[in-house]
Design a protein around this nucleic acid. Structure first.
Ligand SMILES: [Mn+2]
Ligand SMILES: [Mn+2]
Ligand SMILES: [Mn+2]
Ligand SMILES: [Mn+2]
Lengths: 219, 219
DNA sequence: TTTTATTTTTAGATTTGTCTAAAATTTATT
DNA sequence: AATAAATTTTAGACAAATCTAAAAATAAAA
């Protein structure tokens, strides 16, 4: 079946919301989609009639198996394009989201399969988010918040929660990237800030808010 | 100013039509856009009010300077994406048009500038059509139809008029590509077929219809 | 358990892009 | 010049996606 740009954006958005909250409600979706609740209800009816949603009036909704499949294919395209934009075209990671938001709706399947190959079958996008494969399987990574890392352990940065330009600026300053190895040297009681060693650089101190935005995995 | 996908498709189509015929008429545009004359009239009014067209009721229309600028930017994007699809993703040239028809509407200017650089600033797309630069300037090539080439002259294939899979199959058989050098050895009176030498291969004979679809330039 | 507040849905309009059928205009033919 | 044919435009309708304002249903508070 074929979906409009608008439908695909709704489906993807519902997918992301239900990752957190299980069943999704109208107002939350309206807020996330930057539209009005009435518009959401209209779309819910439509997606429901297309068997994308399990939808009970007044009682929330969630994706069907097929709906989740559609969502994952859009997510896959989004993240592969983001990878392309950063790795091949040299964009900064905080500039790619809006462009990928358009590119994810290009319909050709062969295009996305070839793109994936051309990129070397990446598993994670520039923000560290996993890229579903063509069957909708998502690579998993046992990641843990940097703020909760054990003392004197070394781990590798795997993703960043806040992907704003402000965060990017901060991380650039510390030369922290996805893939950087970080060793936790000391945790300061006073404000929760951490002394860390990034790669082979001299140790430095990062604030708790920064640490909480960074996820790492072992080995 | 911003244009919808539909508007951009119309503008580009008008541009191509007026290359041949000067002033464009409603029915021709409807045929090319695979739609109805009434729909075209509606769009003409809209584009006219946006100063994209000089439009006189019942008397045809053509693009304004600004309209031509918009058209060229869409053509530019179309051809750069086609180049990407063939040269980077390994598509055959007869498979790329429809995909580029979607990709040409991605709006980011920075994207297209970076894409151009990434591709090495190509001047011609996989079909041999010129790629306008960011100012709308079009590279020119003094090309001539292969059927009219002088005897015993060597020239380089620069573009192909008919870009169908059938034509591609034919050209593959003869190992003729854009950039192939061709020497005209003999012209047969009977049916206009030509004996040619492609690169360093043994000479072969091509039919007049094939020859008429191939354009070449000297040196 | 009423009453109040919040959430969600419906009703009715609007915009964009399309269509068919009919009217208007131009072009071609007698 | 009058008539026929072709082209183009208008009139009116429709589907998709959105909106505002009002009604209906549910949840929370008194
Ligand atoms: Mn999108
Ligand atoms: Mn991402
Ligand atoms: Mn297009
Ligand atoms: Mn082309």
């Amino acid at each position: 079946m074929n979906f409009s740009v608008s439908e695909e954006n709704y489906i993807k958005c519902i997918y992301h919301l239900q990752q957190d909250t299980g069943m999704v409600n109208t107002n939350a979706l309206a807020a996330e989609m930057q539209t009005k609740a009435a518009s959401v209800t209209d779309m819910l009816k439509k997606l429901s009639s297309k068997k994308i949603l399990q939808y009970e009036k007044y009682h929330g909704f969630k994706l069907t198996d097929n709906g989740r499949k559609v969502a994952l294919s859009v997510v896959r395209k989004h993240r592969l394009w983001e990878y392309f934009l950063v790795e091949k075209l040299g964009f900064e990671w905080d500039k790619v989201h809006d462009i990928a938001e358009e590119l994810e709706h290009i319909s050709s399947n062969e295009l996305i399969e070839r793109l994936q190959q051309f990129l070397g079958n990446p598993s994670f996008d520039p923000h560290g988010d996993p890229i579903p494969d063509s069957n909708g399987k998502i690579p998993k990574l046992n990641q843990v918040n940097l703020a909760t890392l054990q003392l004197n352990k070394t781990a590798v940065v795997s993703s960043v929660a806040n992907q704003s330009p402000q965060m990017l600026e901060m991380l650039k300053h510390y030369s922290i990237r996805i893939g950087s190895s970080i060793k936790l040297l000391k945790r300061f009681e006073f404000d929760g800030s951490l002394e860390i060693k990034v790669g082979k650089q001299a140790s430095c101190i990062i604030s708790e808010p920064i640490a909480k935005n960074l996820f790492v995995h072992y080995e």
